[in-house]
Computed example of a mutant assay.
Amino acid sequence: MRQPKPLPAAVRAWAEQRTGPVVSVRDASHGWDRSRVWELEGSDGVHRYLKISPSVKFFSRESRAYRHIVPALGHSRAPQLIDSRAQDLALLLTAVPGAPAKELGLDDAGWRSVHQQAGALCARLHEAGELHPADRVEAEASLAAAADGAEKYLTRAGDRLTAAEQQLVRDHAARLRRIGPLPVCYIHGDNQPRNWMVSGSGSGFALLDFERTRPAARVQDLVILTVTHWADHPDRKTAFLRAYGRRLTDAEEHALRCLTAMDAVNCLVWGPDNEDAEVTARGRRTLDRLMREAAPQRTDGGRPS
């Protein structure tokens, strides 16, 4: 059992200058070492969240997202930024009601409903506004950047992948580079049920955690869902895309498949390095599936040996 992470005194004092006295603090961090989030209860009875970003890049992305992109989601559909403190990479946020979807023990119908709500809100995020010129350049280069990153992660993964698996990842990276222009937007970047807050017997829905929000191809926001929930439950993908408002094009489906290979090798680096069994299993499962699908099929009607 991990020890609670202490809230730095200087950051607490800064938060109290903006909200009044804090009467209780709860460590709300994720399991990985660099996650630092606390739930603060004020003397006014209001709960707020204080987050210290793991890097300048994530702080810049998230503070910018809260100021310029998140408002397009509408009231109560995401936390609001109360203030930020760049010297400590700190963000002070309002709370949204509910609990993460992954903690609710939903049945199949419940999951379809949640994915439908996620699709609708994701569409609103993706249509938040025109990209600034520099952001458009970054977005249009995002698939090539993902492909370029594959070699870096392959090097770091070492013998966690076989030679055949390494070649499969390289093949998918090469295909990704050949895909033409795709629709671009500001993506959430970590679009999955742990960041979906559900309240009011399923009627309320909000997005959390915008540290990975960035300009990119729209389809990059669907990678995690593709290799987790949608892998065994295509009905959830159908519900999401119906609410999202359009089907993926053939080029987007092809890009999505290639991106799952990039995600797999990333997971097989990050997961073991951070002792995250869930992320490691996600990468291994995706890679095993891609290898099975790439295996040559026998022509005599039998299964491959």
Rank of each mutant, 00 (worst) to 15 (best):
H254I: 01
N191I: 00
T228L: 13
L287W: 02
V56I: 02
H47V: 12
V223Y: 11
D171F: 00
G149I: 01
S60D: 11
F210P: 04
S63M: 00
F205P: 02
E293I: 00
M1A: 11
V198W: 03
E130A: 13
R214A: 12
D209S: 11
R285A: 14
P8S: 06
A277M: 06
R48I: 11
Q87I: 10
R34G: 01
A217N: 01
V223K: 14
L268W: 06
R218G: 13
R36F: 12
A144P: 00
S63K: 00
S24Q: 10
A216E: 14
A101D: 08
D300P: 08
L256K: 03
D263Y: 06
S55V: 07
E103L: 13
P181A: 15
C122P: 00
L89E: 08
W230L: 02
V11D: 04
W270E: 13
L182M: 07
K51N: 05
V25K: 00
D159E: 15
G98T: 03
R303G: 02
E165M: 08
L92E: 03
G119I: 01
T249V: 13
A163W: 02
W14L: 10
P71Y: 00
Q167L: 15
L241K: 04
D209N: 14
D27N: 11
A217Q: 01
R36L: 14
E138P: 02
L256M: 09
A264R: 03
S60C: 10
Q117P: 04
F58R: 04
L290F: 05
R298T: 15
A90Y: 07
N266G: 14
L259D: 03
G245E: 13
A150S: 14
P54F: 05
A139F: 02
L40M: 12
H172V: 02
P234D: 08
R48K: 05
A164F: 00
V11A: 08
A157Q: 11
H75N: 09
G301W: 07
P6I: 10
L287I: 07
G149E: 04
R285P: 05
W230M: 08
Y66C: 03
T162M: 10
A217R: 00
A150E: 11
G119Q: 01
V114Y: 01
V56N: 03
H172Q: 13
D209V: 10
G98L: 05
R170H: 05
D209W: 11
T238A: 15
N266A: 14
T280C: 10
R212Y: 15
E16C: 01
R124A: 12
R178H: 07
A13K: 13
V169E: 11
G200T: 07
E140C: 12
R160Q: 04
V223S: 08
H229S: 13
D250S: 12
L121R: 06
R26S: 02
V23Y: 00
L182G: 03
L154I: 10
A206S: 12
L207F: 15
H75I: 11
G202V: 01
Q116M: 13
S84K: 07
H188N: 06
S60T: 14
E275H: 15
A144F: 08
R34Q: 09
D107K: 04
D190H: 12
E278K: 06
P133L: 12
G149M: 05
A15W: 06
D232G: 11
G283K: 03
R236W: 15
P79I: 07
A150T: 14
T280V: 05
G45N: 13
R298P: 15
A99P: 00
T213A: 11
R178C: 06
K51G: 06
K237C: 07
A72T: 12
